[in-house]
């Protein structure tokens, strides 16, 4: 809402604070930009991430294991089974792509031979 700075519009919620905001936002941006590029920030973020992952990963693994066990008991495929199947499909797709390329080369040579 590009209001004239001189005027005050009570129906523009950000307009009431616009001048203050415009004055300060650049300073905040610079300050925060510098803060996240300090070694202290890098270290604390790394530590927090590490702590979160090392505490949550065992729980997640336990849940995955029990889910896989439950699905196996129900004779149903687990996400790992589906993942393995998808990997095999990708491999088949690659072999098909190779065959496609060889066929292209063969047809191209055949057509070159005919034109000669």
């Amino acid at each position: 809402m590009s209001e004239d700075k001189e005027s005050f519009n009570p129906f523009d919620p950000t307009g009431m604070f616009k001048e203050m905001r415009d004055t300060n936002i650049d300073a905040w941006a610079k300050m925060m930009g510098k803060a996240v590029q300090t070694d202290v920030y890098a270290e604390s973020t790394g530590r927090m991430l590490d702590a979160w992952l090392s505490s949550s990963t065992p729980v997640r693994k336990m849940l995955d294991k029990s889910m896989s066990q439950a699905l196996a008991n129900l004779k149903m495929p687990s996400s790992d089974d589906i993942t393995r199947l998808a990997e095999r499909l990708t491999n088949i797709e690659m072999r098909l792509d190779d065959l496609d390329a060889k066929l292209d080369t063969f047809l191209s040579k055949l057509s070159d031979g005919r034109s000669e």
Partner: peptide
């Protein structure tokens, strides 16, 4: 320099843990 490099250079930042999780 700026960018991600300062964060990724910290020894506490372990991509292996993220990928393992």
């Amino acid at each position: 320099s700026s960018g991600f490099i300062r964060w990724t250079s910290d020894p506490n930042f372990k991509p292996e843990s993220i990928v393992e999780a």
